[in-house]
């Protein structure tokens, strides 16, 4: 059975929204960390490629 949202009348839905931010911000920070990690790995390979190119020259 569905629960209809009238309960909000006696409750500040802000609390649930603030708490979920822990998860949302956690996901975002994790994503940012992996993006940074991915870029670092990418840069290492690009750096290696550049080195190889300069050796060939």
């Amino acid at each position: 059975m569905f629960k209809i949202g009238c309960d909000y009348m006696y409750f500040d839905p802000g609390t649930g929204s603030l708490i979920i931010q822990l998860l949302v911000a956690g996901v975002a920070s994790l994503g940012a960390f992996f993006a940074l990690f991915k870029n670092k790995i990418k840069n290492i390979f690009l750096h290696e490629e550049k080195k190889d190119d300069s050796h060939e020259k």
Binding site: K3, Y8, F11, G14, T15, G16, S17, I20, Q21, A25
Partner: peptide, 21 residues
Amino acid sequence: QDKSIQRHNQDGSVSARKVSL
């Protein structure tokens, strides 16, 4: 977020003041 709102509506045990980012 909807689930979180419903859950904290039911138990009311977690204070928003504990949320720190």
